[in-house]
Simulated assay, not measured.
Amino acid sequence: MGLLEAKETAAREVIERLRGEADRILAELVEGEGSLERLVIARETVAEVLNGPAVPAQEPAVNAPMGSALPAPGVP
């Protein structure tokens, strides 16, 4: 039985080592995916800025004192 127990112990040690490596690799994967996601967002933002607004510009906002009535859009 001593030989089987030694092999079992060795197998358990290998499994523990592999679990540790898997945890480390998973952490690196999560970090890499986060970096990739940020780069994609940055690229999309740069493309939007360079290409201009995707929708027509709205009429500029009129600054009026608080509580004052503003005319309806298109009314002089």
Rank of each mutant, 00 (worst) to 15 (best):
N63P: 08
A27K: 09
G74N: 01
E13R: 14
A11N: 13
E33N: 05
R12S: 01
L36I: 12
K7C: 14
E21H: 13
P71M: 00
G2E: 06
I15E: 14
L50M: 14
P71I: 00
V62D: 02
E8I: 15
V30W: 08
A69H: 04
A72L: 03
L70D: 00
A10E: 10
A69P: 00
S68C: 04
K7T: 13
S68V: 07
E59M: 00
E33F: 12
V40W: 02
R38I: 03
A54R: 13
A64W: 01
A61E: 05
A64I: 05
G34P: 06
P73M: 02
R43A: 12
V46D: 12
G32D: 05
L4Q: 15
A61L: 05
V55P: 15
N63C: 08
E13T: 08
P76T: 03
E28S: 04
L39K: 08
A72N: 03
N51E: 14
R12G: 02
V40M: 03
L36S: 07
A57N: 14
E8G: 07
Q58I: 00
P73G: 00
E44L: 12
A47N: 15
A69V: 06
V40K: 06
Q58Y: 03
S35W: 12
L26T: 13
A42F: 08
V40G: 02
D23C: 09
D23R: 11
E16R: 12
V46P: 02
G74T: 00
P60T: 01
L18F: 03
L26G: 06
G32K: 13
V62F: 03
S35I: 13
E44M: 14
A10N: 09
V14D: 10
V49M: 14
K7I: 14
R24N: 05
V30T: 06
V40S: 04
G34L: 10
A47E: 14
L50Q: 15
A22Q: 07
V55I: 15
E21A: 06
R43P: 05
A27F: 01
E28T: 04
R19F: 11
G2N: 05
K7N: 12
E5M: 12
A6I: 11
E48A: 10
S68R: 00
E37K: 11
G34D: 08
V62C: 01
E31R: 05
E48D: 15
E31W: 01
L36K: 05
P76A: 06
E13K: 14
P65R: 04
A54K: 08
R38M: 12
A54T: 15
V49N: 11
V46N: 15
E13I: 08
D23I: 07
V30A: 07
A27V: 07
A22C: 13
M1I: 04
A64N: 04
P76F: 01
P76M: 08
V14P: 01
I41W: 11
P65C: 00
N51R: 15
R38G: 01
K7V: 15
A22K: 15
P53E: 13
A47L: 13
A22V: 09
